[in-house]
Amino acid sequence: MRLAVCAEMVFTDLPLVERVERIHQRGFDVEIWDHTTKDVDALIATGATFSSMTGYVHGSLTHDQDQLLKTAEQSIEVAHRLGCPRLNLHGTELGEGGLPVRPQYGVTGEMWLAAAKTLARLAELGAANDVMFVLENLNTEVDHPGVPFAKAADTLALVAAVDHPNLRLMFDLYHAQIGEGNLIALLRKAAPFIGEIQVADVPGRCEPGTGEINYPAIAAVLRELGYEGTVGLEAFAHSDSELALRRFADAFGGTVRLEDI
């Protein structure tokens, strides 16, 4: 497994480029969110390996689909510059604080069909441009009320229905624990469709070892399943970012370059 760290959530007292440099120096790949808020040239200059980034700016799986595709194309251009292989998607456009721009508290059959068609278009776009789109599950109880297709069961159903190698799951275990629980069974079911895994503990959305999720057991199941992809820390530091990275590495059998700390 490769280990990545989301630069948006650790070393938050530093400018983002310096966060990326620190994460890279400590031996991790880097995740980022919206590219439109970033100095892409400065990110490239860090020499970091980028694991994933947000793959759209505006639009939704069920409305404004052309806008979604347009901003996905723009995101692909930035991903190519960064050498970033995975572009993250959500059930709908997210705005300030991770809240949906257009909340939807019920999902109709027509919306399911529209979402699957949009994801199929994105998968073909990914294939034409040698990138993978990954659809992330979210929780609606704490962080993202009003997001459709939020649960891991929903995202898995959509990805499996499209069944395209350039569309996979961004399987977020923090969100799944809040929304569904039963993480190991979910992992086993989702395994053939996972593009990347994200982790944080519950409650608090901090690093492994600070809450109720048994991440060493999760790591053991991933090894049993033969998972060789990326696990990304998308979590706030409970007390100290350096300690958060060490705890993350310990949970998944990775190493931190201690000489740089």
Rank of each mutant, 00 (worst) to 15 (best):
residue 127 A to F: 07
residue 117 K to P: 08
residue 49 T to E: 04
residue 119 L to Y: 12
residue 73 E to R: 15
residue 115 A to Q: 07
residue 61 L to Q: 05
residue 139 N to G: 10
residue 124 E to T: 14
residue 81 R to P: 13
residue 84 C to N: 01
residue 97 G to D: 07
residue 118 T to A: 09
residue 61 L to K: 04
residue 88 N to G: 00
residue 93 E to T: 10
residue 102 R to I: 02
residue 48 A to Y: 04
residue 128 A to N: 12
residue 86 R to D: 06
residue 77 E to K: 13
residue 66 D to M: 11
residue 72 A to H: 03
residue 127 A to W: 02
residue 71 T to K: 06
residue 75 S to N: 10
residue 102 R to P: 01
residue 93 E to M: 13
residue 52 S to L: 14
residue 156 L to N: 02
residue 43 L to R: 13
residue 70 K to I: 13
residue 93 E to Y: 03
residue 151 K to S: 12
residue 74 Q to S: 14
residue 54 T to D: 01
residue 137 N to G: 06
residue 88 N to A: 06
residue 60 S to P: 08
residue 51 S to V: 03
residue 53 M to Y: 01
residue 46 T to D: 05
residue 38 K to L: 14
residue 79 A to N: 04
residue 75 S to W: 07
residue 94 L to I: 11
residue 103 P to D: 12
residue 57 V to Y: 09
residue 54 T to G: 04
residue 157 A to D: 04
residue 118 T to H: 03
residue 78 V to D: 14
residue 119 L to D: 09
residue 34 D to K: 09
residue 118 T to R: 07
residue 128 A to P: 09
residue 30 V to E: 00
residue 146 G to L: 04
residue 148 P to T: 09
residue 83 G to T: 12
residue 79 A to W: 03
residue 129 N to R: 09
residue 66 D to Q: 13
residue 68 L to H: 15
residue 52 S to V: 02
residue 156 L to I: 08
residue 148 P to W: 05
residue 29 D to Q: 03
residue 92 T to L: 04
residue 143 D to F: 04
residue 121 R to Q: 13
residue 120 A to R: 13
residue 104 Q to A: 02
residue 155 T to D: 10
residue 102 R to N: 01
residue 129 N to K: 02
residue 108 T to L: 14
residue 70 K to G: 13
residue 135 L to G: 01
residue 158 L to R: 00
residue 147 V to P: 06
residue 123 A to H: 04
residue 72 A to E: 04
residue 129 N to C: 05
residue 56 Y to W: 15
residue 136 E to Q: 04
residue 29 D to M: 11
residue 146 G to R: 08
residue 36 T to G: 09
residue 139 N to E: 05
residue 102 R to Q: 12
residue 93 E to C: 13
